[in-house]
Amino acid sequence: MYQRKIKKEIRCPIENGLEILGGKWRSRVICVLASKEVLRYSELRTEMANISDAVLSNTLKDLMRNGMVKRQQYDEIPPRVEYALTERGMTAVPLLQAIANWSNGYVKAENNLPALCENCDFNGAMKIVSNS
């Protein structure tokens, strides 16, 4: 089992933030939920395209454990479950927007290639945050 080399309480705050937002899929889930507001699991899976069910399920569990995503289950037949960002999750959207803007400029400058993500709607996500 992995053991940290540095005690958690003396780690850099950036490391703590990256532990919550880092990884290949967490930021994507946050961006998709920010732009779409509320999605059922199957809709989220469709929006995410290349993610497996196991990875999406684990990603959602991690984000729920960190208070970024909420899960609403309805007692219906068939059962209905919806996912949305919490207030804490919405606070991450401007951070991801800033990272996306920086990254787009960096990639364009280095590679002279367009770097915009075809699946994320950063402007729509930002409108949701600014309207709250």
Rank of each mutant, 00 (worst) to 15 (best):
M1F: 04
M1A: 08
Q3M: 12
Q3C: 11
K5I: 13
K5Q: 15
I6T: 14
I10E: 09
I10Y: 12
I10K: 06
R11P: 04
R11D: 07
C12N: 12
E15A: 10
G17L: 15
L18P: 00
L18C: 05
G22F: 08
K24V: 05
W25R: 04
R28T: 14
R28Y: 02
I30S: 10
I30V: 11
C31V: 14
S35Q: 02
S35K: 03
E37F: 13
V38W: 11
L39R: 01
T46E: 15
E47G: 08
M48N: 02
M48L: 13
N50T: 10
I51L: 00
D53A: 05
S57P: 07
L60P: 00
L63E: 03
L63T: 00
L63Q: 00
M64G: 00
G67K: 09
M68V: 09
K70H: 13
Q72Y: 08
D75V: 09
I77T: 14
P79N: 05
R80A: 11
R80Y: 08
E82Q: 01
L85E: 02
T86L: 04
R88V: 07
R88P: 04
R88Q: 08
T91I: 08
T91L: 12
Q97Y: 10
A98T: 13
I99F: 14
A100T: 13
N101R: 08
G105F: 01
G105D: 09
V107M: 03
K108F: 12
K108E: 03
C117R: 14
E118M: 03
E118K: 09
E118G: 07
F122S: 12
A125T: 06
M126F: 11
K127Q: 08
I128N: 09
S130K: 15
S132M: 14
